[in-house]
Amino acid sequence: MNNDIFEDLKKAIKEYDTEAAASLAKKAIGEKIEPLKLLDAMTVAIREVGDGFGRGELWLPDLVGAADAMSAATPIIEEEIKRIGAKRESLGTIVVGTVFGDIHSIGKTMICTLLTAEGFKVHDLGINIKAEQFLEAIKKYNADILAMSALMTMTAPEQRKVIKFLENENLREKVKIMVGGGAITEEFSKNIGADGYDPTAPGAVKLARQLIGK
């Protein structure tokens, strides 16, 4: 019975079925199944999708479809984790967002999915995020890594602004910072004092592991 529900949940994610994922999560919680194991099962499923993408067999809409299905189930399971006071193991906590003035979300969404698949706890703040909002989230989630995206040449300097802002708030040393997006180059990332840059989504996942030494 237990095995079935894990398999069903994995299947729902691999078939991009948002509704099934949410209702299976509810059902499983109702049946008192350990919520951490449910999260693990979903991570396995999303990793399979991520691997398929890496091999060139699956595409961006598949990746995001699976991530959407997982996001539909996650809040239900997390609520239960909170309720029973369990602690979730993860590689680390990452806060992700597209900087202020920039409304491009595709690259960021890819990264979030692949980081989740890898086993990170990912907080996606969305697009058009101001320095203050990044700061708040880093504090709130006790983040290990801040990942910022900027697609446009005009908005790339905003990343420098955020880093400066964190320095002023004495938070710079607390987090590793990785940057990416169409307008960013290796040289630029060094210039603004980021800890790392990678042009590709799978490369960024490796980078995140490196940054926290895992």
Binding site: Y16, L60, V64, G65, T109
Partner: peptide, 16 residues
Amino acid sequence: PIPGHYLGKAHTRKWW
């Protein structure tokens, strides 16, 4: 409107 997007939709998987 934003924050809506189409990337994860079944329609996108079918049509792109």
